[in-house]
């Protein structure tokens, strides 16, 4: 699998961690956008959703 993806906001390079999983969150080092790995096959990232009212513990 590719070890880098392109940020969907600024097109900066975002390095994927080893054994990346679906649902994993990444931060673009260039623009700081929080990204979510939404699919591994094909590898797809999207802007992570905004925090919802009922999120968290």
């Amino acid at each position: 699998m590719s070890t880098k993806v392109q940020c969907v906001v600024c097109e900066g390079d975002v390095v994927l961690p080893a054994e990346v999983m679906e649902g994993e969150l990444l931060t673009c080092p260039d623009c700081g956008t929080e990204l979510e790995v939404v699919s591994l096959n094909p590898l797809t990232i999207a802007e992570a959703p905004e925090v919802q009212e009922d999120w968290g513990e």
Binding site: V51, E53, D54, W55, G56, E57
Partner: peptide
């Protein structure tokens, strides 16, 4: 406080 919520929101 909202009845539902966390992380100190709202």
């Amino acid at each position: 406080k909202p009845a539902t919520g966390s992380w100190g929101r709202l």
